[in-house]
Design a protein around this nucleic acid. Structure first.
Lengths: 198, 198
DNA sequence: CAAAAGATAGTGACTAAGTACTATCTTTTG
DNA sequence: CAAAAGATAGTACTTAGTCACTATCTTTTG
């Protein structure tokens, strides 16, 4: 069997992919460098040629995730802020459904004590997400599309919370296909909550 | 130094308490039997006199949690189902605020692969919680207190999701005191979402 | 009722199985 | 052929779980 050498960048990308794939079927905290290596048909020691420590692998994973998620929710474009919010919602749910390992990774990172680089990236991601939500909600309010007394910070937390709840539900039942269908039903309730005129 | 022997039941209860306390300041997955023992001023080996395995400790913790949480949300009593829902919401948030180790524990257990006894208990807890929510929402609908076309399953998921989101937010900022204040703001949006007449 | 006997809780040193990470040698590749 | 990627075989350390023994508590019995 002939061995295939990848460039350092390729191997880094493959590593991130491997971690995300593994996280879909095992607790992120329990993923070992040996498992990551074996997933890529590479020995465990080879990882340390590209990452100085395991923690750096998590940082790379968080970085990839943040970029992917923000890119997806930034792709929405409409002159109606409510349509944009719905598109963000759908894009986010879609991202999670197609990458079931991501939510456990985020939670695992969130639980970590102290401020690791990976956790800092996660906080930055959430902050930027929040800005986007607030902006669109404010525009919707100005346009008279939602109730004029809408509590925007609370509405932003709620937006993310709904997705959270969905993810949790699907992890509990092990059924992630219900997410897409349920997401529109949840979003309808959300629209009612912020007094959207339909 | 005189040694204090506890009965097996007392020691089990103390262990559960220790685990919950430790989970407030460190990742549940990283809690070792040595840490648990040291928290109670007992050696690590002593734990295995009362629990056959570490997994059984987690099961005991889940059992305690499920009983506590259900007891608290069952205490609410009113002739107005919406008031009951709000009281459940407040009771749940209060439980989480006073036991900050619980959410990480639940999420850690949820991530575990396969069906451990602890995970089964968690699923049972959620199922029972869901029943209570559906019952109250149905009563509210019959009484005309909320919109007659309310999507009850979605509303039940949403109820839990909001709490999820709150918890996540507080874990991110490390500020859990904002939870109580924010919870009423979120609940107001929720009421709007299910078309509550105010 | 006090002392012996038995039961139970806790100790401390150990083990076996991992873990992240490293030093050195080998293969691939431009 | 030289530089980069991977293999091999480690190191040093951590972890859940074990076990023979000891301290403490409870029950029996002369």
């Amino acid at each position: 069997m002939k061995r295939k050498n990848l460039t350092s960048d390729e191997r880094k990308a493959a590593t991130v992919e491997a971690v995300i794939a593994l996280a879909a079927s095992s607790n992120p905290a329990d993923i070992t460098t040996a498992q990551i290596g074996s997933y890529m048909d590479v020995t465990q020691g080879a990882l340390f040629r590209h990452f100085p420590s395991k923690q750096e692998i998590w940082t790379a994973v968080m970085d990839w995730t943040a970029n992917q998620l923000l890119a997806r929710i930034d792709k929405v474009e409409s002159d109606n802020p409510l349509d944009e919010l719905e598109a963000m919602f759908v894009a986010h749910v879609d991202f999670v459904v197609t990458h079931p390992g991501i939510p456990p990774i985020l939670f695992g990172e969130l639980q970590r004590r102290g401020k690791t680089p990976a956790k800092a990236l996660l906080q930055k991601l959430m902050a930027e997400y929040g800005v986007r939500l607030s902006t669109k909600l404010t525009r919707a309010k100005s346009a008279g599309l939602i109730a004029c007394d809408t509590d925007i910070p609370a509405a932003a937390i709620m937006f993310l919370g709904i997705i959270q709840g969905l993810v949790m539900q699907s992890m509990m039942t092990g059924n992630s296909s219900m997410m897409r269908e349920m997401s529109t039903r949840l979003f309808n309730i959300y629209l009612g909550g912020i007094g959207a005129k339909m």
